[in-house]
Computed example of a mutant assay.
Amino acid sequence: MADIEIANEALGLTVTTTGGAIWRFFSRSSGVETPLFREPPPGPGREALKSGCFPLVPFGNRVRSNRFSFEGLEYSLEPNMDWDRHYLHGDGWTGEWQIVSHTSTEIALAFSHCDRTPYAYDAEQRFSISGPTLTTTLSVTNRGEFALPFGLGWHPYFPLTHGTTLKAAARSCWDEDSSWLPTVEHPVAADIDFARPRGLPRRWLNTVFEGWNGGAEIDWPESGISLAIDADPIFSRYLVFVSDPAFDPGYDYDFFCFEPMSHSADGHNMASGGGLVRLAPGESLIGCIRYTCHRP
């Protein structure tokens, strides 16, 4: 396990090789650090679920019943968390990444996975800062023997204050069942229509939004800071997660997740593929997201 830091006059970033996670991401001004991703707990632990953000590779979210068929073959997945019966969010967030390079303004990490069927792959992340902008890049290469559907995403946690607003227009969203998997797609409406800046509901929300144009903005009026998000076209969906104290004892509506994704939850079992991309052996998929901090 190792922590790697980069910083400039506007931003600071700490990445950990454990889970390839962003441990801290913050704005810097006159010696004051303001968190842009959720602040992690103090201490030596580096659990991805306590981090500011972790990668989703070779795809994100869940697959119904841990089974899917692709090009005439049947595949099964094994759960990777003791508290969820699904294979969740891939393997990158549970593995140890290797440092490829580290300069004053850029970090590159690599991860290889071959010990769980059916996915065998190489992944790479790059984190670079320039002025007030952090650019994150994630790629995956199929190292298996067969073509398979791949996807990419990230799982950032953002501070949630009384005045926090989110703007991220979308075409539609999914209801979910008790397994946290999508059921019915319908137009966005009511308190989860983020076409205009809107506060996050203080209730359970675990919803995939479709038809995103890659632009979003989070505002924290208490500090006057906002964060503009600009994602490559591959990230045409996002998931918003707001937990609930009944599910997560101790949760105090102090963070929410806005997760850019290249595919729908359970896209493996959708006739359309849900945005997943077929990668033949040796083929790759790559996408970038830019986070720009605006201060008063």
Rank of each mutant, 00 (worst) to 15 (best):
H89M: 05
D177Q: 05
A216W: 08
I286R: 15
E283T: 03
V240F: 05
G19A: 07
A216N: 05
F146A: 13
D266E: 00
F26Y: 15
F194Q: 05
M1N: 13
E259T: 15
R24K: 14
E47S: 13
V240G: 13
H155Y: 03
V15S: 08
V208I: 11
P249H: 11
Q125Y: 08
I129H: 10
N66F: 15
L49C: 09
A189F: 02
W180F: 09
N61W: 00
S29I: 04
A265V: 12
N269W: 02
E9A: 11
G214I: 01
G52C: 04
P118W: 05
K50N: 13
P44D: 10
R24G: 02
L77G: 04
G250D: 02
N213A: 11
G273I: 12
S178C: 07
R38V: 11
I129M: 10
P55Q: 03
S101N: 06
R171D: 15
I129N: 09
V277W: 05
N269L: 01
Y291K: 11
H89Q: 09
A48E: 09
T137Q: 07
H268M: 02
F68S: 02
W220V: 08
P55D: 04
F111S: 07
R24M: 01
F258Y: 10
A195C: 06
Y291G: 10
E176R: 08
N66Q: 08
L160G: 03
D193P: 06
L36A: 09
T164M: 09
A21N: 07
P245W: 11
P40N: 05
